[in-house]
Design a protein around this nucleic acid. Sequence first.
DNA 1: TTGAAAGCGCTAACAC
DNA 2: GTGTTAGCGCTTTCAA
Lengths: 334, 334
Amino acid sequence: MATLYDVAKLAGVSPKTVSRVFNESHLVTEETQKLVHAAVKKLDYHPNAIAASLKRRRCNVIGFVVPYGSDFVFQDVNMMEQLRGAHDILTREGYEILISAPIRKEDALNEISRLVKHHNVDGVILYPSAGVDEIIAEFDDKKFFYVTLGMCFPGQQTNFVDISLTQSAYQATKYLIDTGHRQLGLLNRPDSFFMNTRNDLLEGYQTALQEAGIDFQTNLVYEGDYTFESGYQALLTLREACPAIDGLLCASDPMLYGVIKAMQDLGLTLGKELELISVDNLPLTRKLYPGLKAIHNPAYEQGSAAGKMIIEVLKTEAPILGVTLKSNYISHQK
Amino acid sequence: MATLYDVAKLAGVSPKTVSRVFNESHLVTEETQKLVHAAVKKLDYHPNAIAASLKRRRCNVIGFVVPYGSDFVFQDVNMMEQLRGAHDILTREGYEILISAPIRKEDALNEISRLVKHHNVDGVILYPSAGVDEIIAEFDDKKFFYVTLGMCFPGQQTNFVDISLTQSAYQATKYLIDTGHRQLGLLNRPDSFFMNTRNDLLEGYQTALQEAGIDFQTNLVYEGDYTFESGYQALLTLREACPAIDGLLCASDPMLYGVIKAMQDLGLTLGKELELISVDNLPLTRKLYPGLKAIHNPAYEQGSAAGKMIIEVLKTEAPILGVTLKSNYISHQK
DNA sequence: TTGAAAGCGCTAACAC
DNA sequence: GTGTTAGCGCTTTCAA
């Protein structure tokens, strides 16, 4: 493997000049550059990123860390969308992405610390989960760099990109009410899942109900766990609590599929006995159920915003004010 | 940031001893280890992976490279399963995973070379795609390390993990025939998609037909492109070519969903006018259509086999004989 | 615009 | 079982 020195020797310039050609080429005359490039080509030289990292104290790698165990991560379409958003931005800006999803959820926090402290990454994009607030505290303390995909604790001010569903939930609920539905259920995400205490779906749902003079019933809210199975169970439970249920907001599409399966098994027709609203709007859902109303969860945008934010954090080496994106209520045309 | 030297000084030992405690602790007496660990703790020392990589000439990072553009990659459930399989093995063995999916497909080959040549990774797990064979030739030449997820060219002998569907396709087709179906379609994957020239699905399908004395009809084979849309179109086309079609093998579940949507739109009932077989067996499919027969595509196993193989390749620094896994035909109980 | 020297933090090779 | 020395390949002073 040719090194910088080999190139310098062959080109008849100093090592530093070769380095400049790769990193600050504007400081080198075109002539010298040509000389260097010729030598580079002849020797098939490629700069060693590791050596540069050691000296620069930056390795241009961002960790994408999901503290939920690998079986969960790689099957969650939303997470993949966030990853894709982050990936596209980071790649464009010259960063590599290292993914880390501990096999056992319990190892998650150690994993994150390890990655950062060992300088495998310059910073991390982090999923909210139990215990992440402690990590963050340590990071702030030691000047490690991070951005979280959502607020990790009440009052977090900086370095997060969150999504608020409140307004869309309001619109979606209002739509159901306006189209004559009165027994409206909410298949919510688990309260504890994302550590923020806000419960934005519930908020929008309640506001719309209140506005329409419909009483809020606790037993029309079911807390799912994002899975198909919990969606299936949700409908059974909700129908038991309120047989006349005629509308349902589903906080995730896998749960929505579970609900639809339960409907099939119960002989219910989508849009007839029961109207559903997807709070995910995954491509597959759009294709399988083109008529379905949905709240679009801007996961890709969240990921790319987080990517931009971590780059900015690395640049300024200072915290950055958090951002909350809004989801969109969409009523499909087709 | 404390360094090895700081620890050594505080512990009253040599730097090398500290290094040994982290890398070859069996060569250090317990007493000395305790001394070192105390100093490590006091200084909150963490080894710098970058510095170690520079010296060792190995960075313990494997690239997972998918030359198809990021929009494709992160939405393909099978690919995610392969990634998960690779991830679990590599993480366990102390490797990090760097994912690389060029935003534009055209940049793919350059990306791969860059990663490897710049020493950002020790080796790559690589998706077959047009042009990968050239990369491989260069890698073999320059002693770069790789494993491919499937054969990349006819006659590839080493460093691949492929999956053969032939036998399962035979079994699935035979099942359809045995249960009275006679007009059997094949919704195949694109011939060019994976560069191997084998067409294993077709092979198994044809063998079963032949055995049953059923004539093979070219117009009962449709070449899809893995998408929902091509599945939808496939059924329309196949029904036009052969209105009495009563069985169909679908090479991917997204295509299967498209077929099912088309069936709904045509008023056909699954299992009545038309029996389907999934050649993917994704979790969601199992849940949505529990009765469906399927060929299980062992994507997770393929990924983990590739993970093991690249580790082995790095260890021996030599090519390793390729492996072909078998898919399984399963008839669900439920 | 270019160059010389020092050193990032670690480990391999070799001594003891 | 432990220590010394040199150097991985680059970039950062600082000087010319």
